[in-house]
């Protein structure tokens, strides 16, 4: 059941591929249409962050289960300059670039479990879970 795939995240078109693969995993996990849309949207936001602010990285997509429920598990990492103040970065509307500042905070609201690890100079790792 557990199937793991590693996708590169080096250019904009990779975000589209990640969205498509996350959609497939969400279908495999038999998520409802709204849940599918939410995890795909969250993945898109985080992947774009990793590409634009983190200079790219990779996305690990895993078809798995959580507490007996089928689930999609994503880990998106980059080796960029990292986030100095994660609490600040998680606030709606905060952006260090020219985005809307909804990527991290919005993605967190769209998934069942969200974890972020980052330190200056050490890149960023975001983990997303959505289960049935």
């Amino acid at each position: 059941m557990a199937k793991k795939e590693i996708l590169p995240l080096k250019q904009e078109t990779d975000i589209v591929l990640i969205r498509q693969r996350v959609r497939q995993s969400a279908e495999v996990a038999k998520l409802g249409l709204v849940s599918q849309t939410k995890i795909v949207t969250a993945a898109s936001e985080i992947a774009r962050n990793a590409l634009i602010y983190g200079g790219g990285g990779e996305c690990v997509i895993e078809d798995t289960a959580r507490n007996g429920r089928s689930a999609v598990h994503l880990v998106i990492t980059d080796q960029g300059k990292g986030i100095e103040d994660i609490n600040k970065a998680m606030v709606d509307g905060y952006t260090s670039g020219n985005g809307l500042g909804l990527g991290l905070s919005g993605a967190k609201r769209l998934v069942d479990e969200f974890a972020i690890e980052s330190a200056p100079g050490k890149g960023t790792r975001v983990e997303l879970w959505k289960w049935r």
Partner: peptide, 14 residues
């Protein structure tokens, strides 16, 4: 706009 997209957009904060 598809309903699931509308729901997701609002939750995203847009």
């Amino acid at each position: 706009m598809q309903p699931a997209v509308a729901i997701t957009l609002v939750e995203l904060g847009l």
